[in-house]
């Protein structure tokens, strides 16, 4: 079976202006959302509250959850704690409310639902300084990953390719963050890990395309840079789509069957893979074209000057 009967010849680069417009608009919307309403940060980054309650009789978790939801805590995470009579409730902090107020309210909700048969055992907080450090470290980690990749690609290819791939990566990361911000999906530590994985994946895709562009620049005697890039994109198109598809298949399995805790992680990667596939074609390649890469830049060093060089049209 094949996606395409024969080799395609789509003129990708002809539509790069329109793609740039679309990318620019989505980027702008993402940035605006991130700046204006920020990310819906999870307990890992904000610090948070944890309440332990003890029931006289073994407690049904579903009942506890609905009691909390009635009290306005539908974001509460509930689990048995040690014994079946103990229930642990995790709550995220809220604007304009002291943490003690939140835990009191949550306890009142549980108490009302069980007719007073519940005892408040313990209230705890996750220190906010830990969250602040984590936010800082997360930002640094992304920066280091980008710098490391920039250096590797610049060494293996050429600085314009390095720039092109990093532009594409920043594009992917910002849009993924933007979607998380726009849809108010909780951003926790595992989502941060997913974003770093997105950097790895998106780059993987871009490198495959770049590899082919380099090969074709060296191989094809004729053709403008634009034609060479278009030919390379067409040759790698079915690989790009097949790999994205298999990756998406496992990610969907993870999102559907992996449980609540891993849901945000899977979602971030799904968004990242979709955006990354698009960006390796339209952002990375068109950036390289816009930066003016030519055949001369990619000839092996020892052959430099030995062959006639095609001028840019």
């Amino acid at each position: 079976m094949q996606l395409f009967k024969s080799e395609t010849s789509i003129r990708f680069m002809a539509r790069r202006k329109m793609a740039m417009l679309i990318s620019g608009a989505i980027l702008l919307a993402s940035l605006l959302s991130i700046i204006v309403q920020g990310l819906n940060l999870g307990i890992d980054f904000t610090g948070g509250i944890l309440v332990e309650v003890g029931y006289k009789k073994p407690a049904e978790l579903a009942g506890v959850r609905s009691a909390l939801a009635q009290g306005g805590f539908d974001d509460a995470m509930v689990q048995h704690f040690g014994t079946s009579q103990d229930v642990l409730v995790r709550l995220a902090p809220r604007d304009g409310m002291e943490s003690a107020e939140i835990s009191d309210k949550a306890y009142a909700a549980l108490s009302a639902a069980s007719g007073g048969g519940v005892e408040l055992r313990r209230v705890e907080f996750v220190g906010p300084q830990v969250g602040d450090e984590l936010t800082e470290q997360g930002g640094l980690a992304m920066l280091y990953a980008l710098i490391g990749i920039l250096i590797y690609v610049a060494l293996r290819f050429e600085y314009r390719f390095a720039l092109g791939s990093v532009i594409a990566l920043v594009h992917d990361v910002l849009i993924t963050l933007g979607i998380f911000s726009l849809l108010r999906i909780e951003f926790d530590l595992s989502v941060l890990a997913a974003i770093l994985a997105v950097i790895g994946y998106s780059l993987n895709d871009t490198i495959v395309v770049f590899d082919r562009i380099r090969e074709n620049f060296r191989k094809l005697r004729k053709g403008s840079s634009r034609e060479v890039i278009d030919a390379s994109l067409n040759q790698t198109l079915s690989r790009t789509l097949v790999t994205s598809l298999t990756t998406l298949l496992v990610l969907i399995a993870l999102a559907v069957f992996g449980g609540e805790i891993i849901h945000g992680f899977a979602l971030a990667l799904i968004i990242g893979v979709l955006v990354g596939t698009y960006s390796s074609i339209y952002v990375a390649s068109s950036s390289v074209l816009a930066l003016g890469v030519s055949k001369a830049d990619l000839m092996p060093v020892e052959k430099e000057g030995a062959e006639a060089v095609d001028a840019e049209p």
Partner: peptide, 26 residues
Amino acid sequence: LSTIVDANITTLIAAVVLFSFGTGPI
């Protein structure tokens, strides 16, 4: 071969950064 190696090394870089930054589960 060279494409595979290039593409995978970049993902390895991301994994190494994740490891050195990460705590616990990450």
